[in-house]
Design a protein around this nucleic acid. Sequence first.
DNA 1: CTCCCTGCAAACCATTTGCAGCGTA
DNA 2: TACGCTGCAAATGGTTTGCAGGGAG
Lengths: 147, 147
Amino acid sequence: MTLEAPYGNRKTGEQRLTKGCRRVLAALEQMDNLTSAQDIHGMLRQSAPEAPGLTTVYRSLDSLVALGLVQSVDIGDGEKRYELVVPGEHHHHLICQHCRASIHLDECLVANLEQSIMSQYGFVIRHHVLEVFGLCANCAEMEMTTK
Amino acid sequence: MTLEAPYGNRKTGEQRLTKGCRRVLAALEQMDNLTSAQDIHGMLRQSAPEAPGLTTVYRSLDSLVALGLVQSVDIGDGEKRYELVVPGEHHHHLICQHCRASIHLDECLVANLEQSIMSQYGFVIRHHVLEVFGLCANCAEMEMTTK
DNA sequence: CTCCCTGCAAACCATTTGCAGCGTA
DNA sequence: TACGCTGCAAATGGTTTGCAGGGAG
């Protein structure tokens, strides 16, 4: 896997990412929700027939995750989702089971616990997963009035 | 799916679970770690050739999860794990990426946050996933001395 | 006879891999 | 020429489904 300057102008440092990566990145910039690889591929192909194939989308996402520009989110339905992140940061989500919207929480709720887990169990935390499922305010209200 | 008394003596209330469920339950009782459906199946078949097939193991696990006797844990490698739980309760894990051991945390760290998330976002929590990955005390020490 | 648990084999489906083509340096 | 991104098609692998057999009541 090539992480830096595989293509493009190496003097200026521009175009550091492969074509595929840039297309995927552009697609993710337009999404305000968690998006699957299949969705990204479908979206790109819809607006341009010569868009990257599914294989390239998967490989690009791998690179982008390794670069820290994108984080992958496993919501447990067998299809990973992806989203842009501020490099080096990460966050968690409230995922509405009705409208599929995802609200992202500003801060990582687990970071505070790391120290106490470390001292209590001697466990060295490398990484963690936290996702919350339920109904967003809108859908919860709809559910109330419908019943 | 039949959740109650599909087989067995209905007068006494015993044998409320299907044969498959009971075999799976027995297998889980012997495990002290998270266990996959494939592992349960392999283990049962090894000690008894007439043990339930893989299909039955999957269907039994579904029933047991629905009954609240078992919880499923998704550790993100495409293979769900299962473990016995006190009915109605659930907990999270510290999962060692080196030796695969899982330490389960006594209390749910998210429960405390539910109220604040509810009032802050109007989000109604139905369920959540929290798993922590890293190195257990033993493996962390080994890693230190090896390097 | 009816119900439904059970098992095998086939289907499923997101993701990964093999391999040939091609653009860039 | 050498390298490596790219795409198609095939393989992968855990899980689910279709369907026939069989035990319990």
